[in-house]
Amino acid sequence: MEPLEEIDIFIFDTLTDILFDKVPGYKEVVDMGENSFFSDRSTYLFMNEFAVYLGGQIIADRTSSFVESSFD
């Protein structure tokens, strides 16, 4: 494995751990298979999917616990 690839994987794993800790509802979404980029370990694609999902949740109910925890 290339050193830069190892760094990318470390960043991805760290970022997703923090995100799932702060927004546990999103881990449930990923576990249900609604997020196809998790298996790619692409930080940018993963965060883009999160942003798109969050945008939909804001439209649906901007006062939901998911939205509030996402901004915390």
Score class of each variant (00 low, 15 high):
residue 2 E to C: 12
residue 5 E to P: 03
residue 6 E to W: 15
residue 6 E to M: 14
residue 7 I to N: 07
residue 10 F to L: 05
residue 11 I to H: 12
residue 11 I to R: 14
residue 11 I to M: 08
residue 12 F to E: 03
residue 13 D to Q: 11
residue 13 D to K: 13
residue 14 T to I: 05
residue 15 L to M: 08
residue 15 L to E: 13
residue 15 L to A: 15
residue 16 T to K: 10
residue 18 I to L: 10
residue 19 L to S: 04
residue 20 F to K: 08
residue 20 F to I: 06
residue 21 D to F: 02
residue 21 D to W: 01
residue 22 K to V: 10
residue 22 K to P: 11
residue 22 K to D: 14
residue 23 V to W: 00
residue 24 P to M: 03
residue 25 G to P: 04
residue 25 G to Y: 01
residue 27 K to R: 11
residue 27 K to T: 02
residue 28 E to I: 05
residue 28 E to Y: 00
residue 29 V to I: 15
residue 29 V to Q: 06
residue 30 V to I: 00
residue 31 D to V: 04
residue 31 D to C: 09
residue 32 M to T: 12
residue 33 G to C: 02
residue 33 G to D: 00
residue 34 E to T: 00
residue 35 N to V: 10
residue 35 N to T: 04
residue 36 S to V: 15
residue 36 S to Y: 15
residue 38 F to H: 13
residue 39 S to I: 12
residue 40 D to S: 05
residue 40 D to M: 06
residue 40 D to A: 07
residue 41 R to E: 06
residue 41 R to C: 06
residue 41 R to G: 01
residue 41 R to P: 02
residue 43 T to D: 05
residue 43 T to E: 02
residue 45 L to I: 06
residue 45 L to D: 15
residue 45 L to K: 02
residue 45 L to H: 11
residue 46 F to D: 05
residue 46 F to H: 04
residue 46 F to R: 03
residue 47 M to F: 08
residue 47 M to W: 05
residue 48 N to H: 09
residue 48 N to P: 06
residue 48 N to V: 07
residue 49 E to Y: 03
residue 50 F to E: 04
residue 50 F to S: 06
residue 53 Y to S: 13
residue 54 L to P: 03
residue 55 G to V: 09
residue 55 G to S: 14
residue 55 G to N: 11
residue 56 G to T: 07
residue 57 Q to L: 10
residue 58 I to E: 03
residue 58 I to V: 14
residue 59 I to R: 14
residue 61 D to N: 04
residue 61 D to I: 03
residue 62 R to N: 01
residue 63 T to C: 08
residue 64 S to I: 04
residue 65 S to L: 13
residue 65 S to R: 02
residue 65 S to N: 13
residue 65 S to F: 00
residue 66 F to C: 09
residue 66 F to P: 06
residue 67 V to C: 02
residue 67 V to L: 06
residue 68 E to L: 13
residue 69 S to G: 02
residue 69 S to K: 08
residue 69 S to N: 09
residue 71 F to A: 01
residue 71 F to M: 08
residue 72 D to Y: 04
residue 72 D to R: 00
